[in-house]
């Protein structure tokens, strides 16, 4: 349909014929327990757009096979409404099969879409010349590699995880790394652009501030106790710990430390300590909790 594309905007089949009927199948691989459980969000609208363009640029009959039309967005529902008046066929039902096996003479040489039309409660066979699949959005195949490279997290589906779904939607759990667009979850261009703007602004505000605020609960090395054994080096997920080769002691870069305290628990010499979570503090907490051991029976 693209005027600058290979067919110059002409709708043609592989063999050069012009299709008389086109079937657009929505939600392929989306909203399905067996494949991707999520809604890919963009397919409804781009399928509708495609149907509209097909009507505009050709005289083909257009069928949309959909589960639900999700037209949530500014002016989206209105666009759907408009299409309903454009003589486009809407069949509500999940397509069971597309086959080239003809059961009737008029299906000869066609692709037959088998679907239960749930609005009229019958199983239909719709012969078409061309099938367009609205394939669902998936995370990039290498998203785990990228995730690891930037030290960020993925949700179970494999999309990058934001720090907070409402309050920090473009932040990640790693400071200074921001996410925007479809890598965070299926979304359309307006949403991607909005997120990208937010992410850019976040990054700029970091740069503009000229200084970085750190969480106070970082770990630090008590040099006189450090034996330089390097146990802590491999344990730090942020590579915040290095070994000062001159002093032969571990050194923690406070700007990189996120304050998990794993190195503190690992250090065999007890030479690493954590601000706000000092061993002494935790021991006193334990002590405090167990002080009234004899009189605990009154809880409830």
């Amino acid at each position: 349909m693209n005027a600058s594309g290979p067919t110059g905007g002409d709708l043609v089949l592989r063999d050069g014929r012009h299709p008389k009927t086109v079937g657009i199948i929505h939600c392929v691989g989306s909203r399905d327990r067996n494949t991707n459980r999520w809604c890919s969000r963009t397919c409804c609208m781009y399928s509708l757009k495609l149907a509209h363009l097909l009507k505009e640029h050709s005289d083909a009959e257009v069928y949309n096979f959909y589960i639900d039309i999700r037209a949530a967005g500014k002016a989206y529902e209105e666009f759907y409404d408009k299409l309903l008046e454009e003589n486009i066929h809407f069949v509500r039902g999940r397509v069971a099969e597309v086959t080239d096996w003809a059961a009737r003479p008029e299906e000869e040489g066609k692709l037959v879409i088998r679907v239960e039309d749930t609005l009229i409660g019958v199983v239909r066979r719709v012969p078409v010349d061309m099938v367009v699949l609205a394939v669902g959005m998936e995370p990039q195949a290498d998203s785990q590699d990228v995730r690891r490279m930037f030290n960020i997290s993925c949700s179970t589906e494999g999309f990058f995880l934001e720090r907070h779904p409402k309050l920090a939607p473009v932040d990640t759990f790693t400071d200074g790394i921001y996410i925007a667009g479809a890598c965070q979850g299926p979304k359309d261009i307006p949403d991607s652009v909005a997120q990208a703007g937010a992410a850019a602004a976040q990054a700029l505000s970091l740069i503009d501030a000229g200084e970085i605020e750190l969480e106070p609960n970082t770990a630090y090395v008590v040099e006189k106790d450090c034996s330089g054994c390097k146990s802590c080096l491999a344990i730090c997920p942020y590579t915040a710990i290095t070994r000062d080769e001159v002093k032969q002691k571990a050194f923690i870069n406070e700007a990189l430390c996120k304050g998990c305290g794993t190195c503190v628990a690992t250090c065999p010499s007890g030479a690493i300590r954590q601000n706000l979570f000092e061993d002494e503090q935790i021991f006193s907490e334990i002590d405090g909790l167990l002080q009234d051991r004899e009189s605990v029976s009154t809880g409830g």
Binding site: G259, C260, G261, V264, A265, F277, D279, I282, I286, L289
Partner: peptide, 14 residues
């Protein structure tokens, strides 16, 4: 409950 930032902070001594 005693809060630690991460379960990795759990020193066996605790």
């Amino acid at each position: 409950v005693i809060r630690v930032m991460c379960s990795g902070r759990l020193d066996p001594q605790f």
